[in-house]
Computed example of a mutant assay.
Amino acid sequence: MAPTSNPLAGAPAGRHRGDLGLFVALAFGLSWASWGAAMGLGGSAMTPPTALPYLFGAFGPLIAALVVRVRRRRRGEPVPEHAVRFRSRALAWLPLFLVATSATVLGAALLAQAAGGPALSLDGARDVMADAGGPAAFLVSMIVSGPLSEEPGWRGTAYPRMRASMGRLQVGLLLGVVWSVWHLPLFFIDGTVQNELGLATPSGMLFAVSVVPMAMLTAYAYERAGVVASMVTHFAANTTMILLDVHTPVTLALVVGLMAVVAAFLLTVSRSTSGPAPSAGPAPAPAPAYAEPGAPAPR
């Protein structure tokens, strides 16, 4: 009897590619359409009517992640094997990620100062918090814009699906490039940090590059303790850079370099905590290349 094709062969890979493609299309489509509207309206990103499409655009990855999750549940499909579920014991990791990430940015700023760069000052931090409406309003805005609006998408949705067919460093680098490209329209909206830096300047290009090691660092946090940990890491990096007014090419270059070294080291030497634990028993027998008619499909 001629072998028949297994209807389940390649299904997980195809499903992951379909979900990933849907997520990327929605994340880019929603964000870029909203930011395009903000560019068309003109004015500052923080003043009406531009503020509405500008702020909505930041939630493109979160909305795309929710769509993919609802779609998966309606189909009765399992969670991707590399997805990291939240566990209460993961809370112990959060202060570590918060301090370590902030220390990485602070260390780069101190190195830049020692090399003749701008001196660190708390005056700029006070001004930033005052402009935001006070420390509490500033912290809320830093949690919502970036960590909450992006991490459930980039790390919670895209990362585990890419890990199904790629290594950790490969995913970190590729997803970092995609994430960096996603930010590009912000360079053309008045009032954003990216617009103040300018795309065609050394600082602007270094900011775009800095997203790649940032993606690697948040990926490590995600693998250790789930999406909450990647949100904390994202929050720590963004908040520290804004409070320290990191914008000069020297400081940004040191942030990129130091963060890349730390992230690559962690991803290289640490064992992945996502996916099923390795079995201590003998390797299972290979699945048959085909199923006889009427036989149960392999699982």
Rank of each mutant, 00 (worst) to 15 (best):
W182K: 11
T218D: 01
P53C: 05
F235P: 02
G40M: 11
V171H: 01
L8V: 12
P296A: 15
S141K: 15
T4Y: 15
R74A: 13
V84T: 08
A114W: 09
R85E: 11
L217M: 11
G10T: 11
A112P: 04
L122Q: 11
R72T: 04
I189K: 13
A158N: 03
Y290F: 13
M46W: 12
L96D: 05
N6Q: 13
V246N: 06
A219T: 08
H234P: 03
A9C: 05
L52Y: 14
V246M: 09
S102V: 06
G204V: 10
T251N: 08
V262S: 12
R15Y: 02
L174E: 01
L184W: 14
P48E: 09
L258P: 03
L254N: 10
L148I: 12
L8E: 13
G191F: 13
R155F: 04
A295N: 06
E223D: 15
W35V: 09
L41Q: 13
P7N: 08
S230F: 00
P78Y: 03
A108W: 08
L22S: 04
R72S: 04
S203T: 11
N238F: 09
V70Q: 13
G18V: 02
V212L: 10
F207H: 10
G204A: 10
T233H: 02
E292K: 15
G294K: 10
Q170L: 09
A114H: 07
G167E: 06
G226E: 01
P78W: 03
S210L: 11
V193R: 15
D19K: 00
G281P: 05
L254K: 13
A291P: 05
A109K: 03
R224H: 03
L94Q: 04
W35G: 06
P53T: 11
F187G: 05
Y54C: 07
V211G: 07
W154H: 00
E223I: 03
